[in-house]
């Protein structure tokens, strides 16, 4: 009877260890999934660039200047 209790206790430990091992191993996949979700910096989804347009309006009698 006592031996059977010891065996049951050992089996419970083995079960817990196996569950933990499987969980840790599958955790590698979860890391991969997570890293895929993070692939690509959101900042890379938008880009901005600038250009310039310029001129000079010379003074004339029409715009308040002198000839």
């Amino acid at each position: 009877m006592d031996n059977e209790k010891v065996i049951v206790a050992l089996l419970i430990v083995v079960v817990l260890l196996s569950v933990a091992t499987v969980g840790i191993t599958l955790g590698l996949d979860l890391d991969k999934v997570f890293s895929k979700q993070q692939a690509g910096n959101p900042a890379d989804y938008v880009d901005v660039n600038h250009a310039n347009v310029a001129l000079v309006i010379a003074k004339t009698p029409q715009n308040g200047g002198s000839t």
């Binding site: 250009a51 347009v53 310029a54 001129l55 000079v56």
Partner: peptide
């Protein structure tokens, strides 16, 4: 990236 018509008047 630039357009410049310089100086001028109407």
């Amino acid at each position: 990236d630039s357009i410049n018509w310089g100086s001028g008047a109407v």
